[in-house]
Design a protein around this nucleic acid. Sequence first.
DNA 1: GATGAATGAGATTTCATTCAT
DNA 2: AATGAATGAAATCTCATTCAT
Lengths: 220, 220, 220, 220
Amino acid sequence: MKLYLAQTAAERFLNLPEEKQERILTVASEAFGQKGYAGASINAIVNRLGIAKGSLFQYFGTKDGLFRFVFNHALHKVKDYLRDVRDATTSSDLSTRLTETFLAGARFIRKHPLIYKLYLQLLTDDSIPFRNDMLLSLRQYSLEYIRSLLEDARDRGELGAHVDMDKAAFMLDAVMDRFLQAQAVPHMDAGLGLFDGDMNIVVSWIEDMVVMIQKGLKKT
Amino acid sequence: MKLYLAQTAAERFLNLPEEKQERILTVASEAFGQKGYAGASINAIVNRLGIAKGSLFQYFGTKDGLFRFVFNHALHKVKDYLRDVRDATTSSDLSTRLTETFLAGARFIRKHPLIYKLYLQLLTDDSIPFRNDMLLSLRQYSLEYIRSLLEDARDRGELGAHVDMDKAAFMLDAVMDRFLQAQAVPHMDAGLGLFDGDMNIVVSWIEDMVVMIQKGLKKT
Amino acid sequence: MKLYLAQTAAERFLNLPEEKQERILTVASEAFGQKGYAGASINAIVNRLGIAKGSLFQYFGTKDGLFRFVFNHALHKVKDYLRDVRDATTSSDLSTRLTETFLAGARFIRKHPLIYKLYLQLLTDDSIPFRNDMLLSLRQYSLEYIRSLLEDARDRGELGAHVDMDKAAFMLDAVMDRFLQAQAVPHMDAGLGLFDGDMNIVVSWIEDMVVMIQKGLKKT
Amino acid sequence: MKLYLAQTAAERFLNLPEEKQERILTVASEAFGQKGYAGASINAIVNRLGIAKGSLFQYFGTKDGLFRFVFNHALHKVKDYLRDVRDATTSSDLSTRLTETFLAGARFIRKHPLIYKLYLQLLTDDSIPFRNDMLLSLRQYSLEYIRSLLEDARDRGELGAHVDMDKAAFMLDAVMDRFLQAQAVPHMDAGLGLFDGDMNIVVSWIEDMVVMIQKGLKKT
DNA sequence: GATGAATGAGATTTCATTCAT
DNA sequence: AATGAATGAAATCTCATTCAT
């Protein structure tokens, strides 16, 4: 397990019983996810946790430190989750793998809605420390993940050699991310209720995109 | 010009010379766009403006009032802009109209990056007063705008009667919004530089979507 | 009257009624003089003053700003005082002028003990912001003051041309400063009570130094 | 070696390997010397030492206890040093002995600058616990040291019986202390650089003082 | 005897808001 | 209508100290 902070500070946190660690990260990511970086209050967090203010600062040093730890922790969770999905579907075709990935993402967001909110915070708040670094690394990870699925498909002959991998990956990433966004943010469906039940619509849409990419997305 | 606020308060603002009004709204939307609702500071805003703190409170009553005014003002700007685009392209085909709309959006964001940031704030920050109302009305407006383009196309015979208008509008709205997002937020292209020059890729993608909708998006 | 601070901040303070200004500076210099820079508490200061915490920060911006203002204000007071002494004694001989200066200093310290304590703080506390600048400028002022008395004396023929002005000024400054120190810090006389009544001893000692300088302090 | 503390607590410290004791005292006196009593942080001290916070409290009980131990330890060091100087110069004349004493003091300060800073802290900070006691005892020791040199000189016939011993000791103490102060505090020479190289000037000044005392300092 | 997690009071500083002028 | 001084609650963060392990 990597350390996301100056060792002296994060070490202390990692020495706590796992249960307590989990509780702290949950409450903190709730706070950040709901109120944003600036709006979240350390006071409120410790009150909710029932621990002393000083303790939190011993664990993470600063508010920045807490946010970064929370965010990185969430990121690891997502990565682990995605890795599992990829490994469990190696034998399926591209369409299925992408669909499974999307459904897994949707399930993850439904289970951990605040982690996605955390990511949205990152999009909007310039003042989040190291925002640009975090954002870039996150998008690159996502992109590379999808790209790896595409390359597998190409190697297997599912996708023609003419397809521009970068663009294809970007398009899929963009669109799938947007559908995920609609899971986490209320009213994004403008009250139509498109995402409440099953995901049939989105799934068929993804399948169509794969066809389009195969047929039409040539290198420039 | 409509009033977005309890009259007594906003009246004072609307009596100011337009130039001053503009300056105040610009600085305020910069602040909210960059730092978020909670992170923006009235103190900083009035310092930057060089006006008295008390004046701002006389114009807008509270921080909430200021934010809502700024946001509604921005929304009106966008709507005006879009209406112009629609009116200027009534004779074109659907593909062209959508493309023009997207390009107009991209131009608008490039010219007023902070207004889009303001919208992103709305996505993430639960604590923004009347957030849900504002978000819903915004998405509905966007959806209806696209729907009106689609319906025009159907009435003209460009689109078959079998096409599910709601879904089609939603899909187009979602995807186009995502591409716009990439204009406003750095690193969303993961460093690939897809959006730096012309919009050829995005434009051809939109055209492909229209074809897909026409061919395949049946009602369920 | 000069401004000692970023204008925006100090201006607010200078707009206050003089009476209130005086009270604030008095209480603050008491606090700093008694407890040192780090030991003094803004909380305690505002409680003693009966004003709001925020007000003090509006006047001075930071604790640093307050300290520097207080110190500079005190310095100005001392300079004004010394200038008066110099001007009032232009026709006297060197010995008398130095003696008068010392006595004036002693009176000043007795009247404003905390200002001298403030200067002592400067000697000891590395962490005082701009300490070095303040200390250097203070010692240079003191030195130049004494030097100007010496040069007047030389011009009048009281002191030979052979006397090293720099050294003479430094010696007199050092010794007189030390005697002043003994006024402000208890127990510096180790309980002998040398300074309680009149200053005869010190005065005769200063006269002897002038003789020594005239007779023996040659340039090297 | 005497105990400066309630036995129970200090015993633990004195049982440590001398090397560790030394390291702790050094780091602590650095902290107090540089930042003052209030400004020094136990947290910072233990971090620098790499020991547990609890340990320091077991050794010294409180911050006060630590400061007093550090100060008394330093005082002992100085006394030992001075005693050596006195014993090594019994056969010299008064002027030489005083000069040697001053030079030893200057060497000591150069070697242990923070110990002198510690003494300066005592001058200024009313809130240091037992400050008055410590200050009085220190000045008395210094005074008695010089007095003993003077009395030796009188007994040897170097100094007339008419000389007021108390005053003479006080004057010498005051002036020499001031020159020492200039060693420890930067800018006390107002940038003239009088103390950088050898101490010729100060030494000759001390010799002159002895002459003055012998000739002129009568009892009153 | 050493450790370092836990504590909560208190530090400095910022904030939105009020209101007399 | 405009000002900006006054406010005090709440923000982040540091501190000396305690105590179970």
